[in-house]
Design a protein around this nucleic acid. Sequence first.
DNA 1: ACCATTTTGGTACTTAAGTATGAGCCGCTG
DNA 2: CAGCGGCTCATACTTAAGTACCAAAATGGT
Lengths: 136, 136
Amino acid sequence: MKKTVLVFSGLILGIILFIRLSTYTILSGYSTLEFVIALIALVFFFIGMYLNKRSLGHLKKPQTKIDREKINTLGLSSREYEVLENISEGLSNKEIAEKLFLTESTVKTHVSNVLLKLNAKRRTQAVQIAKRFEIL
Amino acid sequence: MKKTVLVFSGLILGIILFIRLSTYTILSGYSTLEFVIALIALVFFFIGMYLNKRSLGHLKKPQTKIDREKINTLGLSSREYEVLENISEGLSNKEIAEKLFLTESTVKTHVSNVLLKLNAKRRTQAVQIAKRFEIL
DNA sequence: ACCATTTTGGTACTTAAGTATGAGCCGCTG
DNA sequence: CAGCGGCTCATACTTAAGTACCAAAATGGT
């Protein structure tokens, strides 16, 4: 953010200096004024794009908004979804059971239901499908 | 892309018209010229940012560049990495074996090595760790 | 209060995943 | 050329995952 501000103010100064100079030297006709302004507009346009790309590039997480509509469409219950989340974290059934204060047997039931509803054969596939559906 | 071009050219026209008018009306002193130009620069800066954000927003995949350095650091061989990729696709050992023309037994060896090198206990966890390391 | 769904849990079983260990083959490098 | 690392495959196990089927609470809406 510091860099951005520095670069930005530096460019503002540069532009102002450029104007100061151009008003007394290059700038003679009207068309030249328009050209200079168009150039400035273009330059700042691309600077805006560049800086934006940089700042967005720093965002590590894709921030995929969870499609709750889709979860309902698939018929996933809240508990089943909760289990699915933990599967994607790489937890085992036993670990999920401990985390959610359940028996492993209950977790297995939920997992089986999730696989059915997502039409997956394995938990790994379920995660992949869930991400395609943007519910994870 | 069509929209972008249209909006862009429209704005260029608008700016030129604005200049035409301002040169004969508002624009009287030097400071005003600078102000107008700064304004244009600012406007185009934000237009650039906005358009860039829009176009980047259409990208569905986060485009996480694969950190090949990290792969080497972890000591993952190319075959092991290939297996890891297929694990993240939700494939079973048997399916990976068929896809890569291997026996299931070889795939299991690779999987075991991957789990060791990623310090994971399960294939699901391996995928999660790999994504944190940005190698997937 | 009743019904549908969810949540929970169990048993019994099958299948997949993962570990340990050994071994042959190939290509590269000191 | 000996050796190392990577790739392949196998056997024998252990453990986790997943299926099928059932059933009792809990929950929530009409």
